[in-house]
């Protein structure tokens, strides 16, 4: 994969824009004055040391938290005040840093739950299943199995999600989020706890998703993954924006190196 720097030459249409977002928890300024513009069809990475506010930013974008100040616009729509579940219908999906699968449900059932907003069943057929109900069930099942195929978990469809290996659970979270048919997918540290081969497979899949037109927001510590995939990188530290640029620029930036390696490295 090429770090696709040339893409930035002519500014593409922004899909997600945030302007001067702030979020405090008591006295802690978790996110301070963050602005960003994410273009459709790109991979936007957010990096920074632990506690830099990356996950809080993701929670603001996905609606788990509401910002204290600032604006968020998604494809022209004002997202501030919109709860998380409503944002899903507009095409935002996410995974969680701390895995939050439905552990007692099967792998397939986890993905099927992701079809919540996409059923087309006449209300009465929920009470008495008819032809339309069965057609919908077939459609969702086939789609869910395709998604499991995509993340390489089709052979595990029937086992409880809680019995999957750690890396598999991360992939299942991605498949479940994809079931909502997102235009923008936010993945929170998808490579955490994965081995080298798994990271390579994850990289291929995220690249594949971008080719399918899904815009990706990637919060990640694995620098190889970020530098290979990202079109644009936002570096955060202490809740603030430290730098934003293409991968090459980020790697060369002295303040970024300082934040990661300590000031002595300069």
């Amino acid at each position: 994969m090429n770090p696709a720097a040339p893409k930035q030459a002519d500014p593409p249409t922004p899909l997600l824009e945030a302007h001067r977002l702030c979020k405090n928890f008591g006295g802690v300024r978790a996110v301070q004055d963050i602005s960003l513009t994410i273009s459709a069809g790109t991979v936007f990475a957010i990096i920074g040391p632990n506690g830099a506010g990356k996950s809080t930013l993701l929670n603001l974008l996905s609606g788990v938290y509401q910002p204290d100040a600032g604006e968020i616009r998604f494809a022209g729509l004002d997202l501030v005040g919109l709860p998380a579940h409503r944002r899903v219908r507009h095409g935002l999906a996410r995974t969680f840093q701390k895995i939050r699968l439905f552990k007692q449900l099967s792998v397939l059932e986890n993905v099927l739950a992701g079809y919540h907003t996409r059923h087309s069943i006449p209300p009465l057929q929920y009470l008495l299943h008819g032809a339309a109900f069965r057609a919908d069930a077939r459609r969702c099942r086939a789609g869910a199995l395709d998604l499991l195929e995509f993340v390489g978990l089709a052979h595990r469809a029937a086992v409880p999600a809680g019995s999957l290996a750690y890396g598999e659970q991360r992939l299942l979270e991605i498949a479940r989020a994809l079931a909502t048919s997102p235009r923008l997918l936010m993945v929170d540290e998808p490579a955490a706890g994965l081995n080298g081969a798994e990271v390579a497979a994850l990289l291929r899949r995220i690249a594949n998703l971008r080719e399918r037109g899904v815009t990706i927001v990637l919060v990640e510590h694995n620098m190889d993954l970020v530098m290979t995939l990202a079109d644009r990188i936002l570096v955060m530290d202490y809740g603030e924006r430290l730098f934003e640029g293409a991968p090459g620029e980020v790697q060369a930036h002295p303040e970024v190196i300082a934040a990661y390696l300590g000031a002595e490295a300069l």
């Binding site: 788990v64 709860p83 998380a84 579940h85 899903v88 739950a113 919540h116 009470l127 919908d136 909502t180």
Partner: peptide
């Protein structure tokens, strides 16, 4: 019939993890 429909999937998703359910568009 309801518990063996997407309604059942929705309710069990809420039972298992409400934050996660909300991330799938479920209004807990």
């Amino acid at each position: 019939q309801m518990v063996h429909s997407p309604i059942g999937e929705t309710l069990t998703a809420i039972r298992e993890d409400e934050v996660s359910a909300a991330s799938l568009g479920i209004d807990g």
